[in-house]
Amino acid sequence: MSAKLFDKLATLLMWLAGIVILGILAAFLLYILYKGVPVLSWDFIFGKSSDIQAGGGVGAQLFNSFYILLLSLLVSIPLAIGAGVYLAEYARDNKLTDLIRLSTESLATVPSIVLGLFGMIIFVNALGMGFSIIGGALTLTLLNLPVLVRVTEESVRNVPVHYREASLALGATKWQTIWRVVLPNALPGIITGITLTAGRALGETAILIFTAGTTVGRQIVNFDVTAAGETLAVHLWYVMAVGLVPDRVEIANGSGALLIITILILNLLFTIPSKILQRKLGAGGH
């Protein structure tokens, strides 16, 4: 076979691969929405779930998903920004820095079921929180941290050096420079990172089964952090794996669509302002 013909053939194959990859994704999303959207109704989205009878909703699970996500972000964002700024601004090329980097990378690959069991030992058993929203949120923090640290470090590094030099030359301390110059300019990147993390955390299941539990309280909206808090993703798994309700396939279809829609909205909501912010900052400087 001539080299030219082979080149054409290979090009065709690569095109095929690209199309297959897009096709699988499109098929996935369309299938989930096609099956799930008809299930979505006011009663389903905001209603109470049922253990035995058909017709239960997912209101409490939806609330818990966001509540646990919010709590875990409240803990992980400040810590991750601190660690990310340290790695980008302070860290010298020494053993300690290397160890911190290795730890962050390792933490990022720990399987979520292992994090779940760890949370179960520490938060649920040792600290006596039981299956609770706070136990789930703190364990989820362990999943968020490494990703957020990496994103913060990258965004901080991308801030041009002369910004810092200008600030330092004006007599600002290092902390003032970081707070007033570096972090505001790194913000668009950090926000994008938070969105990616939030989307992942919202769909996380293995971590939460043995920390936040598989049951919900009696009220739909329950701010008590010591109550058990089954989330939407856990609910989807639970009804399919262990559930007794007769309409479990419908509930799973609806929950799946609801999860996907929520994550898509979340991404849109956060990516657009971060893009605008980026454009504004870009127009102001350079």
Partner: peptide, 20 residues
């Protein structure tokens, strides 16, 4: 404060290894 939050990564992974 920055060093402390960065070191937390190491503390967490070591604690996970030790406890699990």
């Amino acid at each position: 404060l920055f060093i402390a939050s960065a070191s937390l990564m190491t503390i967490i992974i070591v604690t996970i290894i030790v406890f699990v």
